[in-house]
Design a protein around this nucleic acid. Sequence first.
DNA 1: TTTT
DNA 2: TTTT
Lengths: 164, 164, 164, 164
Amino acid sequence: MAGSVNKVILVGNLGKDPEIRRTQDGRPIANLSIATSETWRDKGTGERKEKTEWHRVVIFNEGLCKVAEQYLKKGAKVYIEGALQTRKWTDQSGVEKYSTEVVLQGFNSTLTMLDGRSGGGGSFADDAGGDFGSSGPSMAPPRRAVASAGGGGRNNDMDDDIPF
Amino acid sequence: MAGSVNKVILVGNLGKDPEIRRTQDGRPIANLSIATSETWRDKGTGERKEKTEWHRVVIFNEGLCKVAEQYLKKGAKVYIEGALQTRKWTDQSGVEKYSTEVVLQGFNSTLTMLDGRSGGGGSFADDAGGDFGSSGPSMAPPRRAVASAGGGGRNNDMDDDIPF
Amino acid sequence: MAGSVNKVILVGNLGKDPEIRRTQDGRPIANLSIATSETWRDKGTGERKEKTEWHRVVIFNEGLCKVAEQYLKKGAKVYIEGALQTRKWTDQSGVEKYSTEVVLQGFNSTLTMLDGRSGGGGSFADDAGGDFGSSGPSMAPPRRAVASAGGGGRNNDMDDDIPF
Amino acid sequence: MAGSVNKVILVGNLGKDPEIRRTQDGRPIANLSIATSETWRDKGTGERKEKTEWHRVVIFNEGLCKVAEQYLKKGAKVYIEGALQTRKWTDQSGVEKYSTEVVLQGFNSTLTMLDGRSGGGGSFADDAGGDFGSSGPSMAPPRRAVASAGGGGRNNDMDDDIPF
DNA sequence: TTTT
DNA sequence: TTTT
């Protein structure tokens, strides 16, 4: 199909520590359980209500898995950007089940810590060991590198003066 | 929870006509089945691959339900903005199942037709019978009304010339 | 034009306290200055680089203006969702200028505090004094009320069991 | 800054053909002029109103530039995802000006054609010559390659049947 | 002018 | 299981 978009944006808190496992060929996969919640006041009774939604987030990218493993803990607030994916599986009693997950994989996936503890954090895009510096043998987490790409050929004399 | 976001953005095509049903008290609910797909070239073989993902979209807002009923058909391309919601239900054989849906309900829900046939289309926000004109006995679909709100107190002399 | 979307999503910190002013007819307008920044490692030198972008955010909605006034301070981290708008104006020397702002107005605008101090906060949608509770003489900030809209007619027996 | 997000999502139509230029070292830069518009009904008079917003979009990524050059024409409808950037420049009379643009550069940039003519289309992410196949001397446009990354270690037996 |  |  030409021209489709499948994007999920969540800001929420981890309900527990990330779970990291490995595939047979050694690639890491991280699972996050992220809570979002809505609060509102009941129109009739006026009482305050809250509803929590839990999201299963699966990270296939190696760099983002490391970020999750090293920096994220139960309770951490994160911004994530991924895609919806529904997986079919069969439970032990042979019943077919579907599980819908938010998948961070390939491009246009992002994981950003929003509580800036530990000095480590920052914003990470899923660069799949891509073009920008952070690859190689170093274990340094990949850095989002928007400003460097295509930097040549542009008058980037952005001093941070405010135009307003 | 202070500060959470639960947002899904899809651009895709309807796999079938919208299904409209009504609650006991007469409120409409529309179900859409939307396909998104990814294409890529296999790194090993070089062949073109495609994977389609199907999304279950549920519209609770009355105005958007009417839009869906009147304007959307199988094959239509739409932009939708909603929230993830996982629902638990029990099938006829007593097995507990979970279903994750993209819910359009309340604020911050949008349904926009992207193939501008039928003159009807346009962009619709889920205004829940809100502040902007489209309420009342009229069956007219709600219109997104960004520019009118707060129009006072602002120099809105934007002529539609391209400023660059 | 049928079918367009104009959306900006920012997560950043306020560079200074919100500035609130009023129109002649008494409507509040809040201006926020929000910083986002990118960090990356230079491919050549390996040194850490950072580039900050400043965004002018204008809030026309009365409820969100109150939230900004009461809860936001210099340094606060926020999630905002608005639309791009370029305004033409003439400076004192008669030169035509353009200013591009992120406008929170009408539907599909959101302001959410991400550092949960003061117990006040929460997530606020721009409901324009709409359908959900928060209107009236009360000064209570508007609450995002997704779950209440259309609540009738749905089996919302979501207990927060995790389906995974 | 740890934890910031700078994202613009537009769905709109090109006001004119893309303009492609090259930097001194030969890198292409594409400029798009994209219109979005809002329609609403005036609360007082009831008449239909429309306001068009024009967005300057700058593409630094070589792959996306080629896509723009080869597939996009005046009138084309596109989905784009980029970041806000304000640039300072001096006009011929020495006046300092600011220009805010939507920049597609590096990760998390997307350009997707929404009117599927010419068979070419599809969805493209800005992969900066990244991990997925499309690099090399071939002029083939980069393909978004979500499903292939991390494919090992996962039961991806998704048949494209609609599961609901 | 923020933040790390 | 989070957070307020």
